[in-house]
Design a protein around this nucleic acid. Structure first.
Lengths: 124, 124
DNA sequence: TCCACTACCTTGTGTTGCAAGGCTTTTAGG
DNA sequence: CCTAAAAGCCTTGCAACACAAGGTAGTGGA
């Protein structure tokens, strides 16, 4: 067996409770299969997301009926399992994004990071 | 015994790995005792933070020598345990804030939330 | 044949936020 | 004096979950 335990420590905990949201967001932009999602997420800055993280998560999303699955053969390798959002999944994504924004702003406030009001630079 | 378990569900998980940072940030603005920190955090939008969350966390911060403690009598009640940042704590706060910003931006990107570039409105 | 890549999944472990409850000291009411 | 409430502190037990590691299966090239 193998166990390393604390690989990155804090950073891996920062994604708690948001990874499923990220997955839903990725799926919402078009059906995808698990192996590809890790690459999509990695390309977006979530560099540490591995397969061991997302497959249990995808299973949970499927169990909660937030995603629908469909099998399709691949050109080289085992058949892919494509995930797409269910109507409930879309709603969960919207709700989750709002929850994330709220929590994010609260943390920014607690950390003393100034929230910048966006104002157009028109010469009034 | 008592166990409720899933009180809020997702929202409580969003604070994973950031609560200690929030605590360090609160302490960095002046020594504080635990009971008061929950109120300070609540006033800043972290409405769900309870004592059961922060006391084990404060213990961990103390064990890791990120904070220093000092006892002081209170006007009514048991003596307060004031926490203040150690030099290591200040450094950990800086590093942690940067990690949070990175993770936050990555999540924003993965969720498709547009990042606004801040530009000063000076008449150049 | 052997290796590498694609693609899926499971098991085990450590961290940690939280509910619930208990302890101590002081002040207020009766 | 006795009780109750509040201010403070702390511990126990649990469930959630991200991750490392490893396992399986199919295809194609050296």
């Amino acid at each position: 067996m193998c166990h390393m335990g604390t690989a990155d420590g804090r950073r891996s905990q920062l994604l708690r409770g948001v990874l499923d949201l990220c997955l839903l967001a990725v799926i919402s932009e078009g059906p995808a299969y698990g192996y590809e999602m890790t690459k999509r997420l990695r390309a977006r800055g979530l560099s540490i997301v591995g397969e061991g993280s997302i497959y249990p998560l995808l299973g949970r999303l499927e169990r909660d009926a937030l995603v629908e699955t469909r099998r399709a053969a691949s050109n080289g390798g085992p058949p892919r399992k494509y995930y797409s959002l269910s109507p409930e999944g879309e709603r969960a994504l919207e709700v989750g994004v709002r929850e994330w924004e709220t929590a994010r702003d609260a943390v920014d406030g607690a950390l003393g990071l100034v929230k910048v009001e966006v104002q157009p630079c028109t010469s009034s």
